[in-house]
Design a protein around this nucleic acid. Sequence first.
DNA 1: AAGTGGTCTAGACCACTAT
DNA 2: TAGTGGTCTAGACCACTTC
Lengths: 261, 261
Amino acid sequence: MPSLTSVLGVLDPTSDRAVFRQIADALREAIDKGRFREGDKLPSETELVEHFAVSRMTVRNSLSILQQEGLVVSEHGKGVFVRPRPPVRRLASDRFARRHRDQGKAAFTVEAEAAGSRPEVDGLEVKEERPSPDISARLGSPRKVLARRRRYLLDGHPVEFATSYLPLDLARNTPIAQPNPGPGGIYARLEELGHRLDHFDEEIRARMPSPAEVRTLQLASGVPVISLIRTAFDSEGRAVEVCDTVMAADAYVLAYQLPAT
Amino acid sequence: MPSLTSVLGVLDPTSDRAVFRQIADALREAIDKGRFREGDKLPSETELVEHFAVSRMTVRNSLSILQQEGLVVSEHGKGVFVRPRPPVRRLASDRFARRHRDQGKAAFTVEAEAAGSRPEVDGLEVKEERPSPDISARLGSPRKVLARRRRYLLDGHPVEFATSYLPLDLARNTPIAQPNPGPGGIYARLEELGHRLDHFDEEIRARMPSPAEVRTLQLASGVPVISLIRTAFDSEGRAVEVCDTVMAADAYVLAYQLPAT
DNA sequence: AAGTGGTCTAGACCACTAT
DNA sequence: TAGTGGTCTAGACCACTTC
């Protein structure tokens, strides 16, 4: 077992850089160099206090930097660990192609099982609501909308939650208003209702999560969310659905293919 | 000027929620409700200490939460301010369409000027390198690559930096290896060299920035980065370029249009 | 019981900004 | 000079995990 000095080095008292930043730098470098690997436990706060001869608050300050960077996670009573990279779910840009829809299974389920993960959906909720100004504008200002909310989990870990909004005049008293809309999901039902889907617009943003999102997605600190707002248009150019999705950024890579035209 | 109590309320001593979280909640709620607007100064640490009757470290702890959430920024000697939302640059999925390329101006410049912003590019660097394993794999394992790095700024603020990699056997001794590759950029030159572009693959991730990225993009804390890796394929299916882009997430929204097929 | 991280105090000195 | 945030100390008590 190598000494802490050989792994972390020592402070440079002549440096202008704050002590807690120097300690964070030392730990970050050790992680980058593989001296601590994914899932490894870092030295305890007490050990770091003794090694660097600083107060505990200084050490905690250093660790909080690494936590903000998403490099480590702390577990109460256990220690601070190098954050393991969760398996990444790849969202391909053809995921809503009609050929997938025709198989009758939900896209999320199909993809997850293909990747060897156990998919779950929970918190399903279907309600009639008055739309927010943003959703309203995207849907052509309907008075009310049908909102379908749900959360997606992989192997028991929440990775995404989403709300679909549809103009109420379009969705009311159709299978779309049922908890389970049937094979192929709501896009299949929309087409049966005569709304042949033409294209989707997607808007992607990234930001830090709100406290509510941290709870819903059980996010570690230092993990941003990806916000994806998709609007579905039928062949007459009408916006027939807006889906607002929030994803744990460490669980996703989005893939798009663009023609060079 | 309303009292701090009316704006922030008081602590609930019976709550299980940690005091510093309660204070953060109170400040967050006040911001959400518009009691503090973008650019407004929050009460100073001293004022918060007096109002809530807690120690300064507790107040600082609360403020650091809001900073991690990207809600506020602190300025040494001045105060803590509600973070102003920078203007957002929208990247449309047709930004590499040939019709844009034919106009002869760089896409970044055209878009920025259309949006009323002043575009700049700095730090241009063109080098021959040995590719990283990831880049190498994407480009079909060339021995060496040409790397073109640059940083983009809007109105003086860095928003993005990018590196283009091209197989060296393809780019050496061509205008692509020049600092200024000429009108239409390297994609126009690639087509002149006989590589008719067929399509682009884009991979999008979001994560917290490294310290180097914080410096390069002058990121406030609580601002993630969007990583976009684009691979350009010619009509023979060869990967002719990989562009690795890191964007300040608060400055961008990415827009894609997908056919329903 | 021992070790870990989580919360909190009551100070201190410093660096930066405003006036 | 006064006010602000930035850094740091040396404790204290608590909650959680492991044994």
